[in-house]
Design a protein around this nucleic acid. Structure first.
Length: 242
DNA sequence: CCGGTTGTTCAGCG
DNA sequence: GCGCTGAACAACCG
């Protein structure tokens, strides 16, 4: 569920509720559910791994964390953190971090750091990366301030695609490789999106959770790496350590 | 059945 | 008051 492309699919799934009035809002969190009651949804928005439900004076921020799920026009077996009922259906969010914020998302989030946004700014991303003193490639991709929306799967697949070892120092990367890293973070996110939508993401994964390298067939490496301490999969033969 | 996990936040420490 | 680290959270899947 939680990487950026999946949130964009959610946005498409709920588009039928844009402009619709909230007939009922409830859930098992500490949220001010009453405040949404009777208001029309202006629009839905995505930033990184976050999903926004925008009302005229405030917006709801949904973060799915690791286990979050949603359902449309049906209920799951567990209580929802947030349920919104409209005249033409309902959307339910489970196990998510949900907060209400005054104003609009643009006030609080910089969309130029979102790898899937029209406003994505690769130059800015590069500047942010080179400003960090000591940074591994695997941690760079997990940094939500630089690559909003990139998660652990995208991280592993991008590094494999550009043939860069996960514990390469960003400072030591040739400029060409740094450019590739920034470019592929966005490019792969759209591939992820396309495959996830067609339900073929898993069979298109090259290195994530793989036992062997699909290129050279030697056993793949697997370890928790970097300050982000996340599972990292790579091929010692194909991926160069800089 | 138990271990692993597409993620973030925050308390507690030096 | 900082920056860093590790625990806590949570529920479904294999």
């Amino acid at each position: 569920m939680p990487e950026g492309p999946s949130i964009h699919i959610l946005k498409e799934d709920v588009e039928k509720f844009t402009g619709k009035k909230v007939l009922e809002a409830y859930g098992n969190g500490k949220l001010d559910y009453d405040r949404m009651q009777g208001l029309k949804v202006q629009r839905f928005e995505v930033w990184g791994k976050q999903f926004f439900i925008c009302f005229p004076k405030f917006y709801i921020r949904v973060h799915f964390l690791l286990f979050g799920k949603y359902s449309i026009d049906e209920k799951r077996g567990v209580p929802a953190r947030l349920s919104l009922r409209f005249s033409n259906g309902e959307v339910n969010f489970y196990t998510s971090g949900i907060k209400l914020a005054e104003g609009k998302p643009e006030d609080d989030y910089n969309f130029s750091s979102d790898v899937m946004s029209d406003q994505w700014d690769p130059k800015q991303a590069k500047a942010k990366l080179t400003a960090i003193k000591k940074l591994y490639a695997c941690d760079a991709l997990m940094n939500q301030n630089v690559f909003s929306g990139v998660g652990n799967i995208i991280k592993n697949e991008v590094l494999f695609r550009i043939k860069v070892h996960p514990v390469s120092e960003i400072k030591s990367l040739p400029l060409k490789k740094l450019n590739e890293l920034v470019k592929e973070a966005r490019n792969y996110s759209f591939d992820f999106y396309k495959w996830k939508k067609k339900n073929v993401l898993k069979k298109n994964l090259l290195i994530y959770k793989k036992k062997e390298c699909p290129r050279c067939k030697i056993p793949a490496k697997f370890r928790i790496l970097g300050s982000s301490k996340r599972n990292t999969f790579w091929c010692d033969n194909c991926q160069v350590k800089y």
